[in-house]
Design a protein around this nucleic acid. Structure first.
Length: 553
DNA sequence: ATAGGGTTAG
């Protein structure tokens, strides 16, 4: 092995392991003095290294002076900017590439698509990338296709995603997997399972990521039966020992509020890493066992693992729910010791924690200290102000956010509606609810309907609240009926309460039998006729023997 | 050498 190659390997390893600013500078001065910086292979590695260190400036400098730009170098630098959400730069690099001698390949489009999947103006950006890919003759490419499908589905553009999927002649496993989880992301878990059946039918062998893809759509307790069957399938295919599958199963069971199963899957993971532990801790947090979250977090710290921003944010969420600022402050000081206090995720979680613990001043101070505020930090502070009854300040922050060019999302409106509820502002609430859809194109979800019902109910206009719920598209979430029910209780309207209770039972029943039929189809496919019989018996008992007409295959 | 798939803040 030549000394040159050795150095490359050392620095390649270096780039994977170290992530401190100090090492960037050391490496940088080292590289510029040596001849290494002229080597095309090495330049690509170096860009990757800079990317990992959030040092895009150095990456750009290196790229700009580099004489021979290989397609690898172009892709790496585009990838670095796309991943950091510097989409303008990523796109202008791409345009520059189009007019250069080096033509983009499938990786170029994959890198671009990845960045655009999380931007605000996704639809246009993605269509543009997709169009360019087609022009470059890569419209049916697997690598390019899988990245674009993923981006489309992350952005909720499931129609675009599936159109692209069906146009690709012989999808590989990764492509099937991306489409499966795409359906899950967009709330069509049933279509995902249908596609899974088609995939098997065409003789494709599922891998561990197929299983991970199937779990993505299983997001609430009503889907527990389906979740169990996915788990069963993992066991049967011997795919459950893979650590990524383990994590996905833990979080799937957590979303289904079945913490016992989540825990038993976790126990079966041989060497749980930080992500596995985070999945379990997130599970306890989702199930409302916040004491356990703090306990496990402590255990994790004792075991010498270093929590990351994601985990810290979740733990702070539990401190907020416990409404005890002592826990929160302890985690806050730990965060400072770890040097994570500037992270925007952590900071937003801290704001939320302090305002829910009644210390609004600390929350506001933290908010003021964030250099680049994003949608989440604004949402936290709006929610906090609303919670403390400062409705006009909350709306001021909302306008400030709009002036900064940030696009409000569903959580923003949730926070504003909650503000109105706390201050009893019926008309303001109704107005912002209207504007949410007409001015900002945000579709109302269960939580928004719940707030409207609460606003109407609290004002004592129960009949109007009832008519409002009846006007919603079916199926109506039982949470919405629940909100109305509690308003009926407060206003002691027993007549309406009875009607509402009836509706709740109805909707649950309907949902259950639909799921049972779907599950029985899964069993039928694998010849588990005993289970099928058991389930179908259950269905005839509960819904008069009539099966809804649903087909998976 | 550059992608793609485990947890994910409000």
């Amino acid at each position: 092995m030549s000394s040159q190659t050795q150095l490359r390997l050392i620095i390649y390893e270096f780039s994977r392991k170290f992530q401190t600013k100090l090492s960037t500078q050391k490496l940088h001065s080292f590289v510029t003095k040596s001849q290494l910086a002229r080597d095309p292979f090495f330049a690509t590695q170096l860009v990757r290294f800079y990317e990992l260190n959030d040092d895009l400036l150095s990456a750009r400098k290196l790229f700009d002076v580099f004489p021979e730009r290989s397609v690898f170098l172009w892709n790496s630098v585009i990838r670095a900017f796309a991943k950091a959400h510097r989409l303008g730069t990523a796109y202008s690099l791409f345009s520059e590439m189009l007019s250069s001698d080096t033509k983009p390949d499938s990786f170029t489009f994959a890198c671009l698509a990845r960045g655009f999947s999380e931007s605000f103006d996704t639809t246009e950006g993605l269509r543009c990338i997709h169009g360019n890919a087609i022009v470059s003759g890569l419209g049916f490419d697997q690598i390019c296709g899988s990245a674009i499908i993923k981006a489309y589905s992350k952005a909720g553009l499931i129609v675009e995603a599936s159109k692209l999927f069906v146009s690709i002649p012989e999808p590989d496993v990764a492509l099937w997997n991306v489409m499966l989880s795409g359906y899950g992301c967009c709330g069509f878990w049933d279509k995902g399972i249908y596609l899974f059946n088609v995939m098997l039918h065409r003789g494709n062998r599922p891998d561990c990521y197929t299983m991970v893809g199937l779990t993505t759509g299983l997001i609430d307790p009503s889907l527990l039966l389906i979740a169990c069957s996915v788990h069963g399938f993992c066991l049967k295919m011997n795919l459950d020992s893979h650590s990524h599958v383990g994590c996905a199963l833990v979080s799937m069971y957590s979303r289904c509020k079945c913490i016992a199963s989540a825990f038993s899957v976790f126990r079966s993971i041989l060497e749980p890493d930080l992500v596995a532990c985070s999945s379990l801790i997130t599970g306890y947090s989702k199930c409302g066992n916040h004491k356990e979250v703090l306990y496990l977090f402590n255990e994790l710290r004792m075991s010498g693992k270093k929590p990351d921003c994601v985990l810290v944010a979740i733990v702070l969420g539990s401190c907020a729910e416990l409404s005890n600022s002592l826990y929160g402050q302890e985690v806050h000081s730990y965060v400072i010791r770890l040097g994570l206090e500037l992270d925007i995720k952590v900071c937003s979680a801290l704001i939320d924690m302090y305002s829910k613990c009644g210390i609004l001043d600390s929350a506001m101070a933290l908010f003021a200290g964030i250099p680049e505020k994003n949608i989440v930090s604004f949402n936290s502070v709006i929610l906090g102000l609303g919670l403390h009854g400062f409705a006009s300040s909350a709306f001021e922050k909302f306008h400030e956010m709009l002036e900064m060019g940030l696009k409000p999302d569903e959580v923003t409106f949730s926070a504003l509606l909650s503000t109105c509820c706390h201050s009893g502002l019926l008309h303001e609430g109704q107005e912002i609810f209207m504007r949410m859809k007409s001015d900002f194109g945000v579709e109302p979800k269960t939580e928004h309907h719940v707030y409207i019902v609460k606003l109407l109910g609290m004002a004592g206009i129960l009949e109007e609240a009832f008519d409002y719920v009846m006007s919603l598209r079916r199926p109506i979430d039982s949470g919405i009926w629940g909100a109305l029910l509690s308003c009926c209780e407060i206003h002691e309207n027993t007549h309406l309460a009875e009607v509402v209770a009836e509706k709740i039972l109805e909707s649950e029943e309907e949902r259950r039998s639909v799921y049972q039929v779907m599950l029985s189809n899964v069993y039928a496919r694998y010849g588990r006729w005993d289970e099928v019989e058991r389930l179908r018996d259950g269905i005839s008992d509960s819904s008069g023997g009539k099966l809804p007409g649903i087909s998976w295959v």
